[in-house]
Amino acid sequence: MSAHRAYDVDVRRLDELSAVELYELLKLRVDVFVVEQACAYPELDGNDADCLHLRLTDGGGLIACARLWRPTPDHLPRIGRVAVSPAHRGKRLGEALMREAITACEKVYPGEAIEISAQSHLQRFYAGFGFVPISEEYLEDGILHVDMVRQAS
């Protein structure tokens, strides 16, 4: 680990993750999005192979993750599945994770704006990173969301 942060950053394609790394990633996402948020939905949605997976790790394993979508004809690059391990909350890792995700998107897709589908109650959090709402609120899997975009810097 570097001296200026308490985590390591790893960005890889799905097929570059070991079985243990993949298990940790999917377990964290299911623990947060399905179990903690009491939201029955298809977490394994068939899109992971087309995305990059950003992981924050420490000596003990995975502490946070995000999924980075490549641009398509219908979408800008997107950041999704933003999750911090419940055991590591209160350490500002959500902010660190978003900074790292934005940096990774800017590196892989330079000059592109970035989209997110944000849970509505987190709009202020994402606004702190330059994201602005571009849609009305909508219900997704029983949770209010809003589409947001961050212009390229």
Rank of each mutant, 00 (worst) to 15 (best):
S85L: 03
V132C: 04
R70D: 08
I134E: 12
L76V: 03
Y126K: 03
I79S: 03
T103M: 10
V108Q: 14
S135R: 04
K91W: 04
P133A: 11
S120V: 04
E136K: 09
A113D: 14
H75I: 00
I79D: 05
F125R: 02
Y126G: 06
L122Q: 07
G80V: 07
R78W: 00
A87R: 10
A118Q: 05
R89F: 00
A118M: 10
T72P: 02
L68V: 02
R89S: 09
A101S: 15
P73S: 03
I114R: 12
I134C: 11
V84K: 02
Q123I: 01
P73A: 13
G94A: 13
F129C: 05
Q123P: 01
R81T: 10
G128E: 09
P110G: 06
E100A: 14
A113S: 15
G130L: 02
G111M: 02
P86R: 13
R92A: 15
I116A: 08
K107M: 12
M98C: 14
E136C: 03
V132N: 02
V82W: 00
D74F: 01
K107G: 11
I79A: 01
A96M: 10
R78F: 00
P133D: 01
E136L: 11
P71H: 03
L68I: 14
A96E: 07
A104F: 08
A104T: 13
A127K: 04
G80K: 00
L97A: 09
V108H: 10
E112H: 15
E112N: 13
E106P: 11
G80H: 08
E136M: 05
E115Q: 14
M98E: 09
C105K: 07
T103W: 02
T103K: 14
L68C: 01
V108R: 12
L97Q: 08
A87N: 06
S135D: 04
R78Q: 14
E100W: 09
V108W: 10
E95A: 14
E100F: 10
R70I: 00
P110F: 12
L97I: 08
A118D: 06
R78L: 02
M98K: 08
K107T: 15
I134T: 15
P73H: 09
A101P: 06
